[in-house]
């Protein structure tokens, strides 16, 4: 069984994560590797580019590229599915009937990120793939994906439960004693009746999932730490700010990004060319002014990249601006070829 190399592609929505993930997969497969690209985005563009009508939850071979498969992470996977997998059926039934759990299940997004992370781990653990490229969910630039296992552990082994129950797991019958704490009586008066009791009951049930779920969550966390994580950004100020914040937050959870890929970079040559004489004709002035404006934009992007690299001492790759997003296997390959510095981040070759 091989130990898969894992690349996790992160970044704000709309910076080109899905396209880059597909392109890296195509290039690695063409170099003779068995590659799985996992996407969360049902983008038609990607399935079109890979020449498959749709991508399912199981790996689908891409007909035109030998060795390449794609799968979609099912982010609609629910809390119910997670508890059904890890809990005793009685507990799962009781959870389903608990109003607090139902509200959490509807509204706690970490469950979806966690389900996606579990699914990713399953693919990696088959040991079949040389390389697994993960295109992360767009929420919080993919950070939720990294935090989900930890949040899941926190929730089910969590502070609230420990505070309510003391360090040890109490029996169900001690529940009423818990809710009889004086502070909680005040809390109940404010919260309105049985809420705390419902929460406590929920947490007690969820607590029984702890051993299985926590062990699983920890192994996923380890997998994420050893993966090569890259941050994709464009050089717009907002996207850069996101990338910076994201880079720092990843470091906080012990993930050191392998590098930053700046997508849609304008040619640096425009900075100097802005002073060159425009072609003769009626449009000379308009053409000159336009190149000056975009030259300034190219310069701003260049400066931003330089600052980012100096600040984080990370490797930087750039992918030139393309008139339209790549939509064929050939265009995806060409995009990686035209990129500068991807090999520094250990992503190709």
């Amino acid at each position: 069984m091989r130990r898969s190399h894992v690349i996790v592609v992160t970044g704000a929505g709309g910076v080109g994560k899905t396209t880059l993930s597909a392109a890296l997969g195509v290039v690695a497969a063409r170099a003779g590797k068995e590659v799985l690209v996992i996407t969360v985005d049902p983008a038609r563009r990607l399935s079109d580019a890979l020449g498959i009508p749709g991508i399912g939850n199981r790996p689908t071979p891409v007909p035109d590229v030998e060795g390449l498969s794609a799968a979609m992470l099912d982010v609609t996977a629910s809390w119910e599915a997670i508890t059904r997998r890890h809990a005793h059926p009685d507990v799962a039934d009781r959870l389903d009937a608990n109003p607090f759990f139902r509200t959490i299940a509807d509204r706690f997004p970490a469950a979806q990120s966690y389900a996606a992370a579990e699914q990713m781990a399953e693919f990696v653990e088959t040991g079949y793939w040389d390389l697994v490229v993960v295109d992360t969910p767009p929420s919080a630039g993919g950070l939720d994906f990294f935090l989900a296992p930890r949040r899941m552990r926190d929730l089910i082994g969590g502070r609230l439960l420990r505070w309510l129950t003391g360090a040890r797991l109490p029996a169900r019958r001690t529940l009423y004693r818990i809710t009889a704490k004086p502070v909680l009586r005040v809390a109940d008066a404010i919260l309105g009746g049985p809420l705390l009791e419902e929460i406590a009951e929920f947490l007690l049930d969820v607590r029984t999932l702890y051993d299985g779920l926590a062990a699983r969550a920890r192994s996923i966390e380890r997998l994420m730490v050893r993966a090569a994580t890259i941050v994709v950004s464009t050089a717009t100020p907002a996207s850069l700010r996101e990338a910076r914040r994201f880079y720092e937050e990843l470091t906080d959870v012990d993930v050191t990004p392998r590098g930053v890929v700046f997508n849609r970079a304008l040619p640096v040559s425009w900075i100097d060319a802005a002073n060159a004489p425009p072609p003769d004709g009626r449009d000379a002035l308009a053409l000159r002014d336009n190149l000056r404006r975009w030259g300034e934009e190219a310069q701003r992007m260049h400066e931003a990249r330089r600052k980012f690299a100096a600040r984080h001492q990370t490797s930087i790759a750039t992918i030139p601006w393309l008139e339209s997003a790549p939509t064929t296997i050939e265009e995806l390959t060409a995009m990686v070829r035209a990129a500068d510095g991807l090999e520094l981040a250990g992503l190709t070759g």
Partner: peptide, 22 residues
């Protein structure tokens, strides 16, 4: 941009590229 001509007809070079981008 308000060009009189089609930017595709501008001679090759950065002025044309920037006009096409815009």
């Amino acid at each position: 941009l308000g060009l009189a001509a089609d930017p595709a007809d501008v001679p090759d070079g950065p002025h044309r590229d920037a006009a096409l981008l815009h």
